[in-house]
């Protein structure tokens, strides 16, 4: 294929795309105008039905809970994939080679970065825990909380050494926590089935005060499980990648 022909094909393609795109834009609702009735309906009934004032969480973990199970397992599968591929790779490369490099701190870390990271570990972990456990009351949820919680572990790595990171998050423990989180979500749904309801039916008492931490039945519980699953999956992925990096560094012999 000659460059001229390639350019011609690109121009035809982009012209077609542009035409369809502009045509689509003309039919969009006006700025700030929301024509969907579903959002209005949910806004009106969600708090009364679930006692959760975090309506987004009510939608995520209740009204479309089954979709969320799928999303949860996408992340779980991704983490499993990373672990499977990288651990296998490592076992093949490693052989009897020394693992001295794992005691090293990340290259180029100054004391200022270490101190700042160390100072932030506690607050970040607390914030992540708060987010994961308050999905039912305020804008937050297990996904966000889980990633924030995992970030605290990344800060431990930044503040110290990979060994410290591994000591507070041993691979086996992280694997198990992730599995418990993913299985917990599915198990809540199955428990509802065993009790004779639909899958993921909110079978727990909803509490009496809308917006209380103890309210909303299964929504809070599911958010908790999602939180630990997401945190574990993210720690696992970061941990594997860091280990890969250190391994290559050890082989290269450079610092």
């Amino acid at each position: 294929m000659t460059p001229a022909l390639r350019r011609g094909m690109f121009l035809v393609g982009i012209a077609g795309f542009l035409a369809f795109y502009l045509w689509g834009l003309t039919r969009l609702p006006g700025f700030g105008r929301y024509p969907g009735p579903y959002g209005f309906v949910v806004n009106r009934i969600a708090v009364g039905q679930t006692n959760a004032t975090g309506v987004v969480s009510a939608v995520n973990f209740e009204y479309r809970g089954f979709d969320t199970v799928g999303e949860e397992f996408i992340l779980f599968a991704a983490a499993t994939g990373v672990a499977t591929v990288l651990r296998r790779l490592r076992d093949e490369q490693e052989g009897g080679r020394s693992r001295a490099a794992f005691g090293e701190s990340p290259s180029g870390t100054t004391d200022a970065i270490r101190l700042a990271s160390l100072v932030f570990v506690g607050p970040v972990a607390l914030f992540g825990w708060f987010l994961a456990s308050h999905a039912q009351t305020s804008p937050s949820g297990g996904f966000q909380g889980g990633v924030v919680l995992a970030t605290a572990f990344v800060l431990i790595y930044l503040a110290g050494q990979f060994l410290a990171f591994r000591r507070v998050s041993p691979a086996d423990l992280i694997d198990s926590v992730g599995a418990v989180g993913a299985a917990g979500f599915a198990a809540i749904g199955l428990t509802a089935v065993v009790l004779g309801f639909a899958y993921l039916y909110n079978f727990l008492p909803l509490g009496t005060v809308p917006g209380a931490v103890s309210s909303s039945g299964t929504i809070a519980l599911i958010s908790f499980f999602v939180g630990i699953e997401v945190a574990a999956a993210f720690i696992l992925i970061v941990g594997e990648l860091v280990e890969q990096t250190l391994l290559v560094r050890a082989e290269g012999g450079d610092k």
């Binding site: 804008p139 949820g141 996904f143 966000q144 970030t151």
Partner: peptide, 12 residues
């Protein structure tokens, strides 16, 4: 809610 998600995923 989207803000939090974007913050943790997009920025971190």
């Amino acid at each position: 809610d989207v803000t939090l998600s974007e913050l943790v995923v997009g920025a971190v």
